[in-house]
């Protein structure tokens, strides 16, 4: 009797399906961890795309998404021809780009400062203090801003009056309101945004800094030639992701802070959609605007990614 020793067939002789299954099984732990994330995307990001068809329909809940009558681009036309369309686009883009361009550098600088600090305790306290405002709701921030900026009793205005000046109605003056929106956003979010950049800095090998120090590099030279290049991929990533949301100027913040006197400089696409689409129960219109925003965001990401790959040598994909 001959003993037959069975062995696994050589990998080259396996079918692609078998190879895929073997690879999945080998990394089953990782795929298991990936599963909740994939499910989340499937449920909350891809499934709603099916319902997005109501942007092209006169949505009738009784008839459902599928059987509501088609109306073509009617809701898009209603948005593009609305009385305030150009103002809404301008406000949205100005506030959004300003938050991106003015808000990103402080986060980078804060991350560099914390990373460069030789006193670890102070760095930790600074990091904690700067990211705590992220957890405050905009309603609370509004209360703080009112206490600071109110023309009647605000601390800042009291200071202005004490210095012989006139009080400024920061929250109702169209000339000042956008600055309030942008700087309150920076105050609230800089610490939180810095966490990503700090993580990138921590990932840089300490040997690079040690070698530079041995070679006589100053602190500024180390930042310029080691830290900033080391953070570049994260800076590009964050910028690209935020460009994808360029038509989201911050609904909650503006909804809480704005009032009639500053609508001309503060009313953005999302606040308009809330009033016209949600409060007037025009869900198809609201969906059409959401779809439009998504398409613009996608376009921005594609263009910015190409630009980033060309000039910075790296992109999101």
């Amino acid at each position: 009797m001959t003993n037959v020793i069975r062995s696994a067939p050589p990998a080259a002789r396996r079918s692609p399906r078998q190879r895929l299954l073997a690879r999945l099984w080998r990394h089953r732990g990782l795929y298991l961890m990936l599963l909740p994330g994939l499910l989340w995307f499937a449920l909350f990001r891809y499934w709603p795309l099916w319902n997005a068809q109501i942007a092209f329909k006169d949505f009738q809940p009784v008839q459902g998404v599928l059987h509501s009558p088609w109306v073509g681009l009617e809701h898009f036309q209603a948005f593009f021809s609305s009385f305030y369309f150009s103002q809404l686009m301008t406000n949205t883009l100005v506030i959004s780009f300003a938050k991106l361009l003015i808000g990103l550098p402080p986060a980078i600088i804060l991350a560099l400062a914390i990373h460069e600090s030789s006193r670890r305790g102070l760095a930790r306290v600074t990091q904690t203090v700067t990211y705590l405002p992220h957890f405050l709701s905009w309603v609370i921030v509004f209360g703080i801003l009112l206490a600071m900026l109110s023309p009647g009793s605000g601390l800042l205005n009291k200071g202005l009056v004490a210095a012989g000046g006139d009080p400024v109605s920061f929250l109702t003056d169209p000339g000042a309101f956008r600055a309030v929106v942008i700087f309150s956003d920076i105050w609230k979010e800089t610490g939180w945004s810095a966490i990503l950049f700090l993580a990138a800095l921590i990932g840089i090998s300490p040997s690079l800094y040690e070698a530079a120090e041995v070679d006589g590099a100053t602190r500024w030279q180390r930042i310029r030639h080691i830290s900033l290049p080391g953070m570049l991929d994260v800076i590009v990533l964050v910028t690209l992701l935020r460009l994808g949301h360029i038509l989201d100027a911050g609904f909650y913040q503006i909804y809480v802070l704005y009032s009639l006197p500053v609508y001309s400089v503060a009313d953005v696409i999302d606040t308009w959609v809330y009033r016209q689409g949600i409060q007037n129960f025009q869900f198809s219109l609201a969906t059409a605007v959401g779809l439009f925003k998504g398409l613009i965001g996608l376009l921005m990401i594609v263009i910015a990614n190409r630009v980033a790959r060309r000039f910075a040598g790296q992109g999101l994909y």
């Binding site: 009385f83 305030y84 009639l260």
Partner: peptide, 20 residues
């Protein structure tokens, strides 16, 4: 366009009374 009408009238009146 009720939301636009509401905004237009209210916003204009506020601008007038605030002196903007």
């Amino acid at each position: 366009n009720q939301a636009d009408i509401d905004r237009y009238v209210s916003e204009s009146l506020v601008q007038f009374v605030l002196g903007q």
